[in-house]
């Protein structure tokens, strides 16, 4: 492994898990969000070689068509995307948020997802999807 290889490029170009996307390579857009040991991380900001023994979850590990994770299903139901390119990152952040100390309001969710840019502007639908999952998991 080239020591310069980011976790993002390693996932995409070496392991061919291309569900994780590159939008900026600078930690500014959130498209590359993955979970490392259960916490969300911008995979473009960390080197692959630093994660030898870590547990890494990408969008592919959440669910697939036919057996989607509830958050993935909620994004479909609420049209929480347009182009879909940044969607993996939004979903990975949203799933991590479920275990974070995020307040109940829409504004709380907006703040917690502040690092995930959606240039198509599907933000209200994304928030609706996340809130639907949160409401459901409270029942």
């Amino acid at each position: 492994m080239d020591p310069r290889t980011t976790l993002l490029d390693c996932l995409r170009e070496t392991i061919h898990l291309t569900g994780t996307k590159k939008g900026c390579d600078h930690g500014q857009c959130g498209a590359c969000t993955v979970h490392i040991n259960g916490r969300r991380v911008n995979s473009c900001l960390t080197f692959a070689a630093m994660h030898q023994a870590d547990e890494i979850t990408t969008i592919e590990g959440l669910g697939e068509p036919g057996r989607l994770h509830p958050m993935q299903a909620a994004f479909v139901e609420h049209d929480g995307y347009q182009c879909g390119y940044y969607t993996s990152g939004q979903i990975m952040s949203a799933v991590a948020l479920l275990k974070e100390p995020c307040g109940p309001s829409d504004m709380d969710v907006k703040e917690y997802l502040g690092g995930n840019i959606c240039r198509c502007g599907a933000y209200p639908n994304i928030v609706a999807a996340v809130q639907a999952v949160r409401r459901h998991s409270l029942l």
Binding site: R12, E13, H16, L17, T18, G19, T20, K21, K22, T58, I59, E60, L62, G63, E64, P65, G66, L68, Q72, A73, F75, V76, E77, D79, Y81, G84, Y85, T87, S88, I91
Partner: peptide
């Protein structure tokens, strides 16, 4: 209507240009 390409988009299976190798 929900998008017919929704499930592949939310699961990282939709192939965008730079996903090809």
């Amino acid at each position: 209507q929900s998008r017919i390409d929704g499930p592949v988009k939310v699961s990282g299976q939709a192939r965008y240009t730079s996903d090809y190798s």
